[in-house]
Structures are given as C-alpha cells and as structure tokens.
C-alpha cells in the first residue's frame, strides 16, 4: 500500500493537487486507510461535541434566570486564598502537556525508537489519568455543593445539565483514550510494530488524543471562561 502512495510525490498545497486527488478513479486520500478513517471518525465526533456546545449555548441564552458565574463556581481555596478557576487551569495545562508528549511519541515512533515511543505514550496516558482524576474531584465537589442536572444553588438549573453532559462526555473520551493509549503503548513495547515495520498506528492514536485536547480547548473557552 505504501509503495503505491510513494509513487505520487506531488507537493502538498495548490488547488491542482486537490483536483487531481479527487478527479480520477483512484484513491482520493493518499494516507494509510487507518488514518483517513480516524480523521472521519473525529469529524463525526466534532459534530457531536458541537451539538452539545450548541445546546448549551441555546439554554444559556434562553434562560431568564441568571447563569452561575463559572469563575466563582470553579474557584478553589489554595494556601488560604480563593483562586478563581485554578483547577480548570491546571487541568488545561495537564492536557496540553499530554498532547506534547503524544506528539513526541509519534515522532519517536517514526524513528523506530520502540522504548521511547512506548514510554512517551505511557506518560501521555498518565497525564490523561491525572486529568480524569481531577475531573472526578471537580464533579464530587460540585455534587456536594448541591449541583444536580436539574437544579443547583447558584442560578439557572440548566447549568448542571450542561456541565455534566459536556464534561462527562469529554471525560469519557479521555478515559477511552487512556485505555487506547495504554494498549497501543504495550504493543509498541512488545515490538508488534517492528515486526510489521509500520508505526502508523502511533500517529493514528495520537490524532485521537490531540482531538480530545482540542475539544477541551473549546470547552474551556465556552463553558468555563465565557
């Protein structure tokens, strides 16, 4: 498969390549099929998350009750000081760091560095676990404060449903990603991809993980900062 793709070294960029790729009766996407499929899956996931965020926008705009102020709801008392949104900020940095280690894992994968690839992927999975752990802490805190999907003591009741729905679905993606990463890291370490001489799976796993980070960028902006 990779031989046929390598025979078409047309440069990226330029509408001519786009027309050429789509015009003829041939493979339109000159990437391994797994990568194209992952991208298409991520596209569908984009629609799902946008539906959630749009629903959130809709209920937030249409409620006549004041919306709870995220900056205060998600504040945390550290060292005797009340710092707004600090936990969410730390979670953001953790997720970005996990994306950084993932990008490097992909790189070492293509250099056939088995041990470094597996370790960096495990580091990524570890950051993911930290993220989910902090999210569990955040959920526990809010549930103790009386936030429910149907009501909360801070303001508009739709806050709870949006919060649990959006962060819950994202947390599910992170958890699934941790399992996915650990599985692939194990197989990398075992040498499965050296036998096939194909590390493409690491990049595909990376795509999924970066997407999880990407979704968080939007959740952070629209749900927590807005």
């Amino acid at each position: 498969m990779s031989e046929t793709m390598a025979t078409d070294p047309a440069p990226t960029g330029g509408l001519t390549t786009l027309v050429n790729d789509w015009a003829d009766e041939k493979q339109a996407f000159q990437v391994p099929w797994g990568k194209a499929m992952m991208w298409i899956f991520l596209l569908s996931d984009t629609f799902i998350f946008t539906c959630f965020l749009t629903a959130y926008m809709n209920v937030r705009m249409s409620t006549t009750v004041p919306w709870p102020i995220p900056s205060e709801v998600f504040a945390l008392t550290l060292f005797g000081e009340n710092i707004p949104l600090i936990l969410i900020a730390i979670m953001t940095f953790i997720l970005i760091s996990s994306s950084g280690t993932m990008a490097m894992a992909v790189n070492y994968g293509y250099r056939r560095d088995r041990v470094k690839t597996a370790s960096l992927m495990l580091a990524t999975a570890f950051f993911g676990l930290c993220f989910v752990g902090m999210q569990a802490f955040e959920w526990t805190k809010l549930i103790h404060e009386g936030v429910r999907p149907w009501s909360n003591p801070f303001g508009a009741p739709q806050f709870g449903s949006s919060f649990f729905m959006i962060t819950g679905f994202h947390g599910l993606h992170v958890s699934a990603g941790v399992i996915y990463l650990s599985t692939v890291a194990f197989k990398v370490f075992r040498g499965d991809y050296d036998k096939k001489d194909n590390y493409e799976i690491v990049e595909i796993t990376g795509l999924y993980w970066h997407f999880v980070d990407l979704v968080w960028v939007f959740i952070f902006a629209f749900f927590y900062l807005w």
Binding site: L18, S99, E203, L207
Partner: peptide, 22 residues
C-alpha cells in the same frame, strides 16, 4: 485549536484533498 490541528495533528502537511474533506 489552529496549532493543535496544524502542527500536532499534522494537518499543515497533509494534502489538500484530506484537509478540505475534514
């Protein structure tokens, strides 16, 4: 979002056929 998609997810180096489709 741009940096994550473009650099980390390598979209900046993909052919337009894939970039436009996604």
């Amino acid at each position: 979002a741009g940096f994550i998609i473009g650099i980390f997810m390598h979209m900046a180096w993909e052919r337009l056929a894939l970039a436009y489709a996604i």
